[in-house]
Design a protein around this nucleic acid. Structure first.
Length: 418
DNA sequence: TCTGGGGTCCTAGGACCC
DNA sequence: TCTGGGGTCCTAGGACCC
């Protein structure tokens, strides 16, 4: 049976979330910044029109910021995650077949609503706008890749009014010819440079390329992109997302640090957070990797990592921190300006499938209850129970100078009506 | 001076075995 | 010690996504 894929994608998601709670930002140039307020991770249309690129460093656009009074905001992930949940809940009322693809995107299967796809799309769009305040665009196509293309045009075309149905083939070719090849889902900057050298500049030209040649040159994954552009389904809807294969936590520090103690504190803090994530997913890890690095922009760069294989897969914070501490002991270097530290947990297995070792003398039931108790206390608000090695003042913490409030998830920060 | 964070999949090459 | 092919497993690195 033919599927009809619709991609619902929020417009300028982070900026739109901020605007819902601060309407003064409406129609003004607004950007949301990364951790440490370093680079641009979301832009309003006004800012895109000024030519500011995704990922631009703040210091590079100082002039534009002053000239056009661009509003800068630190990223407020708590707010965005909560808004995302509300949007996904709303979308799920329109079809039983839905895949949440990212924080601001979902694929919907709309087969069976064939008579009035565009109308139905408008209805979805208006409902989400009304219930959550977030504008979104919807593109429909025979494959996910074509739905992405449709969405790309829906966002930019006045005529489309935010919804474009490309399931009808005569329009598909015209649409493909309007989309630059680097905007196709699965084409990154490296591939697009190679394609352009081969004279392939638009999605339409890519769809007409020789699949065999493409497979030889770029691999199997990319060959699928070409097939999908032609309407051949290679990626189906994944309603039950597969279990995660890795969990990671990493941050750049607000200021570079030099002492082993500070590096320990950060590694322990990130490990504690990673262990929490594991427990949220009811998983346990068999491998932990710790890496440390200086800034990439200094003369004497240093990057190193260590991986520890755990005797018994675990999601116990204490055991994981022990391993992380050992790694830092062996990674630390004196007189080194550390700017980043990260933890990656691999070889994840479901918590209940953990293979016990003969030589394991830990009371696993007891440690499980302890972790549950800690999570229960910590989920009530700011992390209140911490391991001593995480440190108390955490001078290396990330900077957030322009943070908006947690309007929807913290009673103290709920908006007030004057 | 100042440049994010969290994921996935594939491939090439080395180690090791028969 | 070298000769040789075939297979598996693991890892590092590349490319992509949001």
């Amino acid at each position: 049976m033919n599927q009809i894929f619709a991609l619902a994608d929020c417009n300028n998601f982070y900026v739109s979330c901020e605007r819902v709670f601060d309407p003064k930002l409406e129609k003004k140039p607004v950007v949301v910044l990364s951790n440490n307020d370093g680079i641009v991770v979301a832009r309003s249309n006004e800012v895109k029109a000024l030519g500011v690129k995704m990922g631009a460093a703040v210091f590079e656009i100082e002039n534009l910021i002053k000239q056009h009074n661009i509003r800068l905001l630190s990223s407020n992930y708590t707010l965005y995650a909560d808004m995302s949940n509300r949007i996904m809940e709303t979308l799920s009322m329109f079809t039983p077949d839905m895949e949440i693809y990212s924080i601001d995107e979902a694929f919907l299967n709309l087969a069976g609503f064939k008579n009035s796809l565009t109308e139905y799309g408008q209805q979805i769009r208006q409902t989400v706008k009304q219930w959550t305040g977030i504008p979104l665009s919807i593109g429909m196509g025979k494959t996910k890749t074509l739905a992405k293309i449709a969405n790309y045009i829906a966002k930019r075309s006045e005529k489309a009014q935010g919804v474009l149905d490309l399931t009808d083939s005569p329009y598909t070719e015209r649409a493909l010819s309007q989309v630059p090849v680097e905007k196709v889902w699965g084409v990154g900057w490296r591939t697009s440079a190679k394609l352009q050298k081969m004279g392939i500049n638009t999605a339409l030209e890519l769809s007409r390329a020789d699949v065999e040649k493409i497979r030889d040159k770029f691999g199997v994954v990319f060959a699928r992109v070409v097939c999908e552009l032609r309407g051949e389904v290679c990626y189906s809807l994944e309603q039950n997302p597969p279990a995660k294969k890795s969990v990671s936590v990493s941050r750049m520090f607000g200021e570079a640090i030099e002492t082993k103690e500070q590096l320990m504190e950060s590694a322990a803090t990130y490990t504690a957070r990673a262990a929490e994530k594991l427990r949220e997913q009811h998983a346990a890890a068999g491998l932990i990797t710790v890496y440390v690095a200086t800034s990439q922009f200094i003369k004497d760069t240093y990057f190193n990592s260590l991986t520890v294989k755990l005797n018994v897969s675990t999601n116990n914070t204490f055991e994981l921190i022990n391993a992380a501490v050992w790694c830092i002991e062996n990674l630390y270097r004196e007189n080194c300006q550390f700017k980043r530290c990260g933890i990656i947990l691999n070889d994840l297995v479901p918590q209940e499938n953990v293979q016990h070792s003969l030589f394991d003398n830990t009371d696993r039931q007891k440690s499980k209850r302890l972790m549950e108790a800690i999570d229960k206390i910590n989920c009530k608000g700011d992390a209140s129970l911490r391991w001593a090695v995480e440190g108390l003042n955490q001078s290396w913490q990330v900077r957030f100078k322009r943070l908006s409030k947690r309007y929807t998830t913290n009673w103290k920060e709920i908006p007030e009506v004057a």
